[in-house]
Write a protein that binds this DNA or RNA. Sequence first.
DNA 1: ACATGTTATGTTATAGTGTAACACATGATT
DNA 2: AATCATGTGTTACACTATAACATAACATGT
Lengths: 159, 159
Amino acid sequence: MAQMTRSTDLDGLIALGTARARSRRQSLTPLRTQVLAVLAAQSRPLGAYDIQRALSASKHMSPISIYRSLEFLMEIGLVHRLATQSAYVLLKRPPAENETLLCLVCRSCGEVDEVSSPAVGQTLGSTLAAASFTPASRLMEVEGDCSDCRRRMSLSHPG
Amino acid sequence: MAQMTRSTDLDGLIALGTARARSRRQSLTPLRTQVLAVLAAQSRPLGAYDIQRALSASKHMSPISIYRSLEFLMEIGLVHRLATQSAYVLLKRPPAENETLLCLVCRSCGEVDEVSSPAVGQTLGSTLAAASFTPASRLMEVEGDCSDCRRRMSLSHPG
DNA sequence: ACATGTTATGTTATAGTGTAACACATGATT
DNA sequence: AATCATGTGTTACACTATAACATAACATGT
Ligand SMILES: [Zn+2]
Ligand SMILES: [Zn+2]
Ligand SMILES: [Zn+2]
Ligand SMILES: [Zn+2]
């Protein structure tokens, strides 16, 4: 079930993207919509070249076009780059203002879980303020092992 | 003063690295020591190819050798890879067990500040536990703007 | 209509980051 | 000596990302 598509959400996602683009005097063009659709069809992060391959059947796009679309989708807050994976994920919820999100990336299966954490947001805010450091975003990445994969590992290495 | 070297620490660092290597039945070889020394001489993160250039005067090293040395130095806990920068930094303090460290990376000047935060460690621990997620490390990266750079920006864009 | 500015895409080439694969050397263990 | 694990050399390659420049498409004011 990890491979399920999320086409149900796509219309709403496009509406949201269109609105956010308009408010910046930009637009969610067909090209950008196609990249968004590819990301929305996967529950896992995709590399830019994965997206290119996914689109190559319907349309040729050079790497730079993919990257430009991704940059735009990140600017309007729908997509996030996972630095530890060099990959891009659709954010499941529209990120609220001042909300601290944790992206839990499983090293083993690659699944990404997004967790909102006011408690971490509070302590992190204090810590950063004490260091006079202003974060560029309230989204943080944590690599590790998800519960499913931990269970699988303990089955194959019983101790 | 940001460019100051830290050669004073180098001997102790080498001793620490040697001890940690030995406990793994490995060793801090000359090659690895050279990479460590280059990182110790800078207060900023360096890319693998920056390290290669730094060493090219004294010795030719292929990229793969640099990466292998970096991997080793990360395994013994002396060096950390900053995913958002694709760069490597010497950890200033020996990371204690179960200590949560924040790497505050300035987008503007590139400086990295390491901050230990028990409070964040506590809330993060609870949040991850609630999500049944086991983190691979207790080191997190936060991109943003340091106080110096914020001051500079406000001077050039008074408002 | 025309000029002007901005947004968006096309095209080509190139830079930057990281590994695979295999051979070889070195040192410890038995 | 035979064996095994560790460490390095060498070559070639894969993957990720951007520079630079041209063109198109669209809005806006005159
Ligand atoms: Zn994320
Ligand atoms: Zn998993
Ligand atoms: Zn770090
Ligand atoms: Zn700074």
